[in-house]
Design a protein around this nucleic acid. Structure first.
Lengths: 350, 350
DNA sequence: CTGTTAGCGCATTCAA
DNA sequence: TTGAATGCGCTAACAG
């Protein structure tokens, strides 16, 4: 049922032998340097390639050119299932598709902590370049980035712009702060004066920025209170939010750090009998497919995660070809997704 | 800000020169063939490695050993965002983590159709082995698998067991049929006699198997009717289900091909005023995180997608090392996830 | 237009 | 226990 022996793929030399030309000529034909090869010879070579079913063996080319045609996506996340967040998934899909256009492959690597990352460095170091999805507080991220930067590979930060001390880096991120401001404005315009911002205990740039945006916009117009709760236990998040809403009945809006938290808030509101949006405004962030599972439909902000992926890939390939990054980075805007969870507040006790 | 010139990594020869030994000695030390090297020399070599910050360059090793230490996950799916389904995402995470233990990397490649796949063959062919996530009807999958098999790479099918004509293949799948039977049994035991099975228009093995399981279990006890609807448009799915429930009021259970469809059924039931589970039983399949967003909590079946990933990786690495696959494949069982959407039916008109 | 030379980094083989 | 030679497949540079 299984066939152990590898058939030993044909090489340039095999083709050259069969076509009766030199190895270099075959190489030129394969690589489209057709201007240097006569039509006649080209035909013979093509025929030989076809009969031998020859395919370029990237191994040899890699060694010769000191390039691997492989780019990594390093996802720093304490969860073993590091691709659970649709954000990283969309980035990966975007990168993979974009890279394929240039003949590159995407290698996906998750690292749960610094030790884990260090153990994977040998494998990572053989890539041509990397995109990095950071995690944690600023200091931790800087340390992580530095470890990776020491490999000497070009790198693009995804969702972060801390390229300050990095010698060969660029970044791609989105307007989390502006997006959160916009959501906060919507909420405030509906009359909210006490906002509860819900985010994970562990943070990453997007979360920090969203909270900052909400607070900035609310400044002077409303109170903002934050609670942190692990996103891994949805039931617990609902519970925590419900408890808080009961204890703090003056809270008239819940802004989730992402849609998961927003949906949890909807569940919490439902459980304690608070009507959304009449008595409580709720927002999320990201707008991935599962947002539609919520009822009422969550008002949110669409994150162009897939586009972040394609842009990261473009930058990395350009960097490899031109030898330098475009200065700075690229910032994508986010798009409001209107739902049914923000509207004029009719508070019982005013 | 950017530094174009690559620092040119140190090679075995550099280390050998500095340590005053031969290249082979360094190679032996690096590869832990320490029995062949005296303690004295070993120290010198280690020191040289440290000062030069030497790391094995896999390019050279790859060429020499004719191995790339890279394994591919080929996701055949018409969607450009081929990683949108959490199932493939969990498989990818499981594979990536497991492969890392053996020093392998995971390359993720999506292909929207046969043409797209063919264009990516050159890149795929340089991998050591592949896992394939099939899509479509049996005939289409066989054709796709054959194209990949022609590369001569060992391959593991994920979620499918059509390894019949494939010379060097194994498979990893889960008990979709048995799982669906179990869900159907629960529904039937609650008194359901008219089951509506909802699945995507395009199918893949899991979907086919789940429908088959539901029908098999219902055979003789209940009618089963299937409707197909693109999963990409959730709103539309809800609409279609709601319409059908109105037109066919005798339907007393909806089984979703996955949790997305199950949740859509919950929305539909809510919209038309059918109580779940008293007047309508609803089930899903997969049990990924977003299932908890549904209200009431969807009764479902947990798919061990992450474990499928680790097992696929294990099999591929073992195949590379031993030269042959373990015969057959591995089948994982699924686990019931009790929710609040299946219970005794109290039908208005009996 | 085509062929020759050389060497990328590594590990197997064989010799010392 | 250590070293030297060899070649994996490919392409830049140059020679013809």
């Amino acid at each position: 049922m299984t066939k152990p022996e590898m058939p030993k793929r044909s090489s340039l030399r095999d083709v050259a032998l069969l076509a009766g030309v030199s190895v270099m000529t075959v190489s030129n034909v394969v690589n489209g340097k057709t201007s240097r090869v006569s039509e006649d010879v080209r035909q013979r070579v093509r025929a030989a390639i076809a009969t031998l079913n020859y395919r370029t063996q990237l191994r040899g080319r890699s060694l010769r050119l000191a390039r691997d045609f492989a780019i990594g996506l390093i996802v720093l996340h304490p969860e073993r299932r590091f691709l659970n967040d649709p954000f990283s998934t969309e980035v990966a899909a975007g990168m993979s598709n974009q890279l394929a256009l240039d003949g590159y492959g995407l290698m996906v690597i998750g690292a749960q902590d610094l030790d884990d990352l260090k153990g994977k460095l040998p494998r990572i170091s053989q890539l041509d370049a990397i995109a990095v999805f950071g995690f944690g507080e600023r200091a931790q991220r800087i340390a992580d980035y530095q470890v990776l930067a020491d490999l000497g590979l070009p790198m693009v930060l995804v969702g972060d712009d801390l390229i300050g001390g990095l010698p060969d880096a660029s970044f791609v991120r989105q307007e989390n702060e502006a997006g959160a401001r916009e959501l906060a404005r919507m909420v405030l315009d509906c009359g909210a004066r006490h906002i509860l911002f819900v985010r994970p205990i562990d943070v990453w740039p997007a979360m920090t920025q969203r909270e900052r945006g909400a607070r900035a916009e609310a400044s002077g117009r409303a109170e903002v209170e934050t609670i942190a709760c692990s996103e891994l236990d949805f039931v617990k998040v609902v519970e925590v939010i419900a408890d808080r809403l009961v204890q703090a009945p003056h809270v008239d809006a819940v802004m989730g750090g992402n849609d998961q938290y927003g949906i949890a808030a909807l569940h919490a509101a439902h459980r304690i009998g608070r009507k959304v949006p009449a008595e409580l405004a709720v927002t999320g962030f990201n707008g991935f497919a599962f947002r539609q599972f919520s009822s009422p439909l969550l008002t949110s902000m669409l994150s162009p995660a897939y586009d972040l992926g394609t842009e990261a890939a473009r930058r990395l390939v350009a960097r490899i070809i031109t030898g330098a990054f475009d200065p700075g980075g690229k910032v994508f805007s986010v798009t409001p997704l209107l739902g049914q969870t923000v509207g004029p507040l009719h508070l019982k006790s005013a």
